[in-house]
Amino acid sequence: MEQVIANGLYLGAQYALIALGLTLIFALMNVLNFAHGQMYVLGGFVTYSIYGQLKLPFALALVCSGVTLAIIGALMEKFLFRTVIRRSKREESTMLLAAATAFFLDAVILLLFGEKQRGVPKIVSGVFVSDWVILPYDRIVVGVIAILMIAAFVLYMQYSKPGRAMRALAQDRIAAQLMGVKVDRYSMIGFALGAMLAGVVGGLLVSITGVNSGIGGPISIKAFLMVMIGGAGVVGGAIAGGFILGMMESVGLTVLREYGDVTYLVIFALLMVFLSIRPNGLMGKPWG
């Protein structure tokens, strides 16, 4: 059972990190970013190119993934989402734009990086073995980095000036504007930050699970699942959703294995019941 819990905690940490960027963008702009998974994939491929192909340090590759996606996110916000939000009063316009962006990025990634699964050399070799648990060192490192990044993100949002401004925006956009918060600027920073998180986690996990051009859609779906569990637009909710999903997967795959592939069936059934009782998820309330 210790192994199952360790698997669940590791999965939860990476899931939480994936969900954070998605929930941030939703909180700030009310945009369901369907391209989140594709941003993750792009981040993975940047790390693959720099660390796996050019043999430069992993840390540098990770920074490049973050910066690349931050720039792409900022440009997307400035030239696409901001324009659509300004011109259209219908919320589904941004959803359609996000879906189109996802398809576009899918095609570009396939064109640039090909159809094959890609992987990079392990960042740390060896496996930790005890009587209770077996865990490769690289997973421990990635899990610790994920938890540190989550903590850093929470502190940044809590105590930095841009963090406070973004929280104010998420709470009440008009009130924040009236109080002098530069809405356009902080929306762009928030979108860039969300995209950057997707890129960094994509880069981080390429060392464990590799990357291929077709996984963007499934990653987005899983991220939405976590956000629905935790509550859309709430940082704590995304973290909780990630860990709950990770643990449910790990426990379900062990306990229910005799019944075939019913783990996700059970998770979805539970989610439907849960959402009918708490439609806003665990912490579904305006951020702040």
């Binding site: 199952v4 997973r139 990653i219 795959l253 062990t254």
Partner: peptide
């Protein structure tokens, strides 16, 4: 003979543990 996984699984450790 009944163990399965979702095709989009990225981390197979939980599936393979048992």
């Amino acid at each position: 003979e009944t163990d399965t996984y979702q095709n989009d699984t990225r981390d197979f450790t939980p599936v393979l543990t048992p």
